[in-house]
């Protein structure tokens, strides 16, 4: 006799279930992946540090728009609004590099802490564009910024916040897949978590500037109210929130890799 375990009803973590319900996720593998992601993040003690978590699961704009941390269909819940050209599929959300971006409605200045914030993402294609491409964030001036950008040369990935820069180099097109995060845990401690989970030596320059009073965008940065540096890469995870330690960044990376492994879209 074959027993279908789903016929008995599986109980998911309440936060996972809330997202599954809001996004209308029906696939059992996707449900399991979401549940494991939530459980892992709670187990690592990083769930409470998240303001917005975009799992990009379900394959449509409607399922991709929801914030796992607060899956209400409102701007105040940091639900994404997609603008311009995107292609949504089971592998994630692919912006077109022409005019595609997503507005998180998360104002960096008011929703994040000046000296404790992170910006993490997982891309499962290379960035096929050339020239300047932003992975997301916002900037109102050279000294008031929070964004990650591939430089024109295509060999440097820069992480900018509070007017300071931390760079990962060299990078090439085929090394831009996978997990990346920038994290600030103090006014004089900002570092990068790389694809393999290792961290760079922290930049210890003391920051004094503010975070931009702008909504963070994904797949471009919000340049004083307009999209700029539109990117081309499939997004399979993005989170914004409080600063993470190097160990927490590694744990987040591992949870996200497990999540995307379950979904078969590394």
């Amino acid at each position: 006799m074959i027993i279908n375990p789903y016929s008995f009803g599986i109980t998911y973590d309440p936060d996972a279930q809330a997202f599954i319900t809001a996004a209308g996720i029906t696939d059992n593998t996707q449900k399991t992946a979401i549940n494991t992601l939530v459980v892992d993040m709670k187990g690592y003690g990083i769930w409470t540090k998240m303001k917005a978590i975009y799992p990009f699961v379900g394959g449509t704009a409607t399922t991709h728009k929801f914030n796992l941390k607060n899956p209400a269909d409102t701007n105040a819940a940091f639900r994404l609004v997609f603008n311009g050209g995107w292609t949504h599929s089971s592998t994630g959300a692919l912006p077109n590099g022409v005019n595609g971006y997503a507005d998180t409605f998360l104002n960096a200045n008011t929703a994040l802490q000046q000296f404790s914030h992170h910006n993490a993402f997982y891309h499962n294609t290379d960035n096929s564009g050339i020239g300047l491409r932003s992975m997301g964030g916002a900037q109102s001036s050279a000294s008031v910024n929070f964004r990650t950008t591939i430089e024109t040369s295509g060999t440097t990935l820069t992480y900018r916040d509070l007017g300071l820069t931390n760079a990962e180099t060299p990078v090439t097109a085929n090394t831009l897949r996978g997990f990346r995060a920038s994290s600030r845990t103090a006014n004089n401690n900002m570092f990068i978590v790389k694809a393999d989970g290792t961290s760079t030596t922290p930049t210890t320059t003391t920051a004094t500037n503010a975070l931009p009073a702008l909504n963070c965008y994904l797949a471009a940065h919000n340049n004083s109210g307009a999209g700029a540096n539109y990117a081309i890469m499939s997004i399979a995870f993005h989170s914004l929130g409080d600063g993470l330690s190097a160990a927490e960044g590694l744990n987040l990376r591992n949870a996200v890799v497990t999540y995307n492994t379950t979904l078969g879209r590394l």
């Binding site: 704009a61 997609f82 603008n83 311009g84 050209g85 995107w86 005019n99």
Partner: peptide
């Protein structure tokens, strides 16, 4: 579509365009 907005932008010649995805 239900959850995506048009985003007309200008090209180098200041012509208004939208993407083929839209």
């Amino acid at each position: 579509d239900d959850d995506s907005y048009f985003n007309p932008i200008q090209d180098i010649s200041d012509q208004w365009i939208i993407s083929v995805e839209e």
